[in-house]
Design a protein around this nucleic acid. Structure first.
Lengths: 335, 335
DNA sequence: CCGTACAGGTCGGAACACGTCCTAGATCAC
DNA sequence: GTGATCTAGGACGTGTTCCGACCTGTACGG
């Protein structure tokens, strides 16, 4: 730890970190460790409680203090290893995080990386290189570096400069006021006010190159429509910044298994509807990549039929033939 | 926030949380926000620096304070959303976390869940249900609840009671002093001193049922051989607690692609060796499940041949035939 | 029943924290 | 250059808090 604490606030911080350990601390031990009298420890505990951190105490011969779940998150005191583990985990999930927490996940990653000691930083990157991005290298993968840089700029209200490669291939340099990151499935969009164009724009984050915070803070403008996510939707429909088909093709797959079985093995947005006692069908807007989809369908561990989209069928077919070749061409399974 | 702060330690904590935001704070703004004079803010910043938190200040007209990377991790102050995101991410990765940080990852999760407010707790579990475990449901999946409970007991040095289902199907109740969690690939082991058997044992965590910390602390014994991981290895070789073949079958796959191409798409422990300019071969001890392996191999996006193990070949074959059936039986791909 | 631990009151002396001055140095806009 | 704006930090007086040393009460385990 930090050695002998002489001042009160510092002692409180270390006390908080000690109590976060999943064990019970007798007051006397805490007193010895912090170099103060047990009475002071009791007072400190009172103070922490006053601040909203619920310190629980068990009385009796084997009693002690410990920090339990309360109404607000206490500051997390992490060991080096733990911080690295979280950073690696969040980075791995940055591209295809669990739906509903993508943006929070990126914010947390940005916050963590802001204060991550450099000696841990390179451990994170080496460890991360051991993971593979599950989306194929089609150039549309989003780097967690870009993502966290943009997230930091959004919450810091700092202007950002970056290079942008539009859908038709033209490159440009932009300076924008970033407002929000929006995630739709596995794709990220940045809603920002483009200072050069003097209008709102949505940018695909995978096409953003080397974002750089200028350091200049800006005062928020009002987002047209009030909702950044809606702006992304509109932009996609108009296809102004994004020349691709705005809506991903619809998934349509039927399974030779009960709906409950299939539902348990697919993400929530791919909810199957029963089409009989032992069959069901999944129809949904696909936000995942075709590769991801194919993998998830295959891992359901039940026979299925792809009705669409054609891209998915084609990929599944190519996967089937490749796997067939991998084991000698014969497609005779054992199941 | 917590409203008007009147006491110094509380103010320091909120200051720390404000500085963790990825933006710069002018001293005057901090002063207004915390209800003290700018001079006090300067003193507080000094104090934080004295405690080891590197507060960086940029001077000049647009200057301000911010917390930067230092030599130790500062206490992370997380928003609700961010805490949920981290918990979900860690849980998702609990089974098959990135190699090298599995144990730290579980420790971090245990620490976080100890203080996670209950209102966030059920959000985590609902969100998690949206993810699919990538290991097939063969009964050998480890619940993150069991894992974190054991991790907490290990660091808390608390005795644990649990039900255990041995490899031959016999059930028993155990009371143990838990020493370490060891992860080998996708499988978890608990090294503990079994109080009933009066000897050291290693338990497969997926066979542990409802661990329960008794609250009784114990004083550490010396681990025989000094190394818990070695103990697991020995136990596996003897097959005392674990009747399965101790070592997973060896993976042997050759690719019709350069080693560099393959290496970039596989985890580090599946390092390919070049067998020619445009071919390479992967030989390794497989710690992942067969399903995972098959998926990873398929996503390399190159033709490959499975030489072993037989289980992998069989699974790949069954996958090939299932995927073939999914698109109408013809195994003719488009690639 | 006793030992241990948490809980909390009081009191006096010492230490500290705070605000209000002050000056110095750095940076940016004009 | 000049001025504005920010951090940096010393000096000082006042008021308060903090701490340790008592003390009593209560809960729990053996």
């Amino acid at each position: 730890m930090l050695g002998a604490m002489t001042d009160t606030p510092g002692r409180l911080l270390t006390l908080l970190s000690l109590l976060q350990t999943p064990r019970e601390w007798p007051g006397s031990e805490l007193a010895a460790r912090l170099g103060v009298s047990p009475r002071t420890i009791r007072r400190d505990v009172d103070r922490l409680r006053g601040l909203g951190y619920p310190v629980e105490a068990t009385r009796g011969a084997v009693g002690g203090y410990r920090l339990v779940a309360g109404k607000a998150m206490p500051p997390l005191v992490l060991e080096d290893e733990e911080a690295v583990a979280i950073a690696v985990g969040l980075r791995a999930g940055a591209g295809h995080a669990v739906e509903g927490v993508e943006e929070a996940s990126v914010r947390a990653l940005a916050k963590l990386e802001q204060v991550l000691p450099s000696r841990l930083r390179h451990r994170v990157s080496t460890l991360q290189s051991a993971t593979i991005p599950l989306a194929r290298g089609d150039g549309a993968t989003v780097s967690s570096r870009t993502l966290t840089a943009l997230a930091a700029a959004v919450t810091g209200r700092e202007r950002v400069r970056f290079g942008y490669r539009a859908g038709d291939g033209t490159e440009s340099r932009r300076q924008v006021e970033p407002y929000r990151l929006v995630s739709t499935g596995h794709r990220w969009y940045l809603v920002a006010y483009d200072l050069g164009r003097e209008d709102w724009r949505t940018f695909r984050v995978d096409r953003v190159d080397e974002p750089f915070a200028t350091g200049a803070r800006f005062t928020p403008r009002e987002v047209p429509g009030g909702d950044a996510a809606a702006l992304v939707g509109r932009s996609l429909r108009r296809g102004r910044e994004d020349r691709e088909s705005p809506e991903s093709p619809d998934v349509d797959v039927s399974f030779a298994a009960p709906a409950s079985f299939v539902a348990a093995r697919l993400p929530a947005y791919l909810a199957p509807e029963a089409t009989g006692g032992d069959t069901c069908r999944v129809r949904a807007r696909a936000t995942d990549s075709v590769e991801w989809l194919a993998v998830r369908l295959a891992l359901v561990d039940a026979d299925f039929t792809v009705h669409g989209p054609p891209e998915l069928a084609a990929y599944v077919a190519s996967l089937a033939s490749r796997l067939g070749r991998a084991v000698g061409g014969g497609a005779a399974g054992h199941g």
